[in-house]
C-alpha cells in the first residue's frame, strides 16, 4: 500500500524540489512507500482531503482544525522557530498611514492562503472594515498581490510575513508596511492521518533526529527549515482553539 503526502499550497515555490527530496528521505527513514502530491490551490487540495486520499500533510493552521478534529489527524512536528504572521502593506506613496485611516470600499489584494487572509481581515477591524464593506480580489501569489498594490489596482495587500520579507528589494521599496501581526502561536504543522498512524512514532523519531542523520541537514536546507520541533497534542489543540476564535 502506498500513502499520500501533500503540502499546503502556500509553500514558497523555491522549495518544491525540497519537498520531493524530503519525501525520498522520509520513505527510507520509515520504510514505507509515500507518494508526494502537490496542488496549485487550497480548493483542489481540500477536495482530496474530503475524499480521504491524504495520509500526511504539511498543513496550513486554518486547515489543521478540520484535519485534527474531524478527520482524526495527529500532530507530528512543526518547523523550528517558524510562525505564520501577516503583513498589510500599501503602496509607498499611499495616503494611508495607519489602519484606522482605511475607508469603506477598500480594495484588498489577497491570496487563497486561508490563515493569512483571516489575520488580515482581523487587522482591518479597528477601521470598522469587514468582508461586507471591502472589495477583495484574489491573486495567485504574493508577488502578484504586491504588483496589484504597486500598480494601484488594489489599495492594500495581505501578505504572509515571510513572503513579504522575501519580496525583491525593488518591489519592497514601492510598498509600505501598515501593520504586522505578532501572534506567535499560529504555525504550519506536519500531521499524520488515520491510515498511517502505525508509523507515527517512527516519523516523529526520524524528524526529531534529523539533524544527526547524515543526509538530514541537506534535506532541511532544501526545505528551508532549521529543523523540526516536536509538537504535542495539547499545543495543537491550543492553536486550534485559538484559530476557532478568529473565524466566524
Amino acid at each position: 500500500m502506498s500513502f499520500n503526502l501533500t503540502v499546503s499550497p502556500d509553500f514558497t515555490p523555491d522549495h518544491i524540489a525540497g519537498w520531493f527530496i524530503f519525501n525520498t528521505w522520509l520513505q527510507k527513514a520509515i520504510g514505507e512507500g509515500i507518494h508526494l502530491e502537490l496542488y496549485n490551490s487550497f480548493e483542489a487540495q481540500r477536495k482530496d482531503i474530503d475524499a480521504d486520499k491524504i495520509d500526511m500533510i504539511y498543513a496550513n493552521p486554518y486547515d489543521a482544525s478540520m484535519l485534527v478534529r474531524e478527520k482524526g489527524f495527529l500532530p507530528v512536528a512543526t518547523p523550528a522557530g517558524e510562525r505564520d504572521e501577516a503583513v498589510i502593506a500599501v503602496s509607498a506613496g499611499s495616503a494611508y498611514e495607519t489602519i484606522e485611516d482605511l475607508k469603506e470600499g477598500l480594495r484588498i489584494a489577497t491570496t487563497d492562503d486561508p490563515d493569512v487572509h483571516v489575520m488580515g481581515m482581523i487587522m482591518i477591524e479597528p477601521a470598522d472594515l469587514n468582508k461586507g464593506n471591502v472589495e477583495i480580489s484574489y491573486a495567485p501569489s504574493y508577488v502578484i498581490v504586491a504588483k496589484h498594490v504597486i500598480q494601484g489596482k488594489a489599495d492594500a495587500g495581505f501578505f504572509l510575513k515571510e513572503a513579504y520579507d522575501d519580496l525583491s528589494g525593488v518591489i519592497r521599496k514601492q510598498l509600505r508596511e501598515l501593520i504586522s501581526s505578532q501572534i506567535y502561536v499560529i504555525r504550519h504543522m506536519l500531521l499524520v492521518g488515520p491510515r498511517l498512524q502505525h508509523k507515527l512514532d517512527a516519523i516523529k523519531q526520524a524528524l526529531h533526529n534529523m539533524q544527526q542523520d547524515p543526509k538530514g541537514p541537506g534535506v532541511l536546507q532544501a526545505l528551508g527549515f532549521e529543523g523540526w520541533e516536536d509538537v504535542s497534542q495539547e499545543d495543537t489543540e491550543f492553536m486550534i482553539d485559538l484559530m476557532e476564535t478568529l473565524v466566524d
Partner: peptide, 28 residues
Amino acid sequence: VYATVVANIRDGKLVGYTSVRRKPSRKQ
C-alpha cells in the same frame, strides 16, 4: 477589547475556556 471565548473540549469533555481579544474599533 473585542473578545471571543470558546470552550476547550478534549476527548469529549470540557476542560476549560480560551479567550482571544483583538483590537476593537473606536466607533464600537
